[in-house]
């Protein structure tokens, strides 16, 4: 059973320990805390967006133990002891992830609201499948709705990122 305290208002609060972007946070949350709100409001990581709130649009996509999920449907208490990666966790040492670089190069996003979610879905894809086909890319981002772009530049950017990271790897190995 999760550890909890009962507040003055009589409501239980639960102790959770969650690793977000490599940093371990120990926090006290109510059972009704949704992961998306925890990230945005408790950790101030507002790159993860809220939109449809029902698992259709993918704007709130984060990686939970490496797999993309809709953080609007995940209870924060259920993530106790687990690892979350948000869009803020993609860049390291001020260096953008190759996917972010290619999104910029291809002008993939327009309004940009869906971009963090698409980055996370694409990241999960490339971690599992470094050399995807166009179909696989389209399928991987099928849970992310974009109402501006028609996806064409997104798909090109993701394919280009896959090719570029393969080249860099080959370069290093050779």
């Amino acid at each position: 059973m999760a550890e909890f305290v009962v507040g003055e208002d009589g409501i239980k609060r639960y102790l959770v320990s969650i690793t977000v972007n490599g940093i371990k946070y120990t926090k006290v949350v109510k059972a009704n805390s949704l992961l998306v709100n925890f990230l945005r409001e408790d950790l101030n990581l507002t790159g993860t967006k809220r939109a449809c709130e029902q698992g259709d649009c993918g704007a709130c996509t984060v990686l939970l133990d490496g797999k993309p999920v809709n953080s609007c449907m995940v209870l924060t208490v259920s993530v106790d002891g687990r690892e979350v990666t948000t869009v803020e966790g993609l860049a390291s040492n001020d260096k953008l992830d190759i996917l972010q670089e290619k999104f910029i190069e291809h002008s993939a996003p327009q309004c940009g609201f869906c971009a963090p979610g698409i980055l996370m879905s694409a990241k999960a894809l490339l971690m599992k499948n470094p050399n995807p086909t166009e179909y696989e890319v389209r399928e991987a981002i099928a849970g992310n709705l974009c109402r501006c772009t028609g996806y064409v530049h997104y798909v090109e950017a993701i394919l280009d990122a896959a090719a570029a990271s393969q080249e860099r790897k080959d370069g290093k190995n050779g």
């Binding site: 698992g55 797999k67 999920v69 449907m73 849970g143």
Partner: peptide, 8 residues
């Protein structure tokens, strides 16, 4: 559904 929902 979609990939994110299938993971949950």
């Amino acid at each position: 559904a979609n990939n994110q929902v299938r993971n949950l």
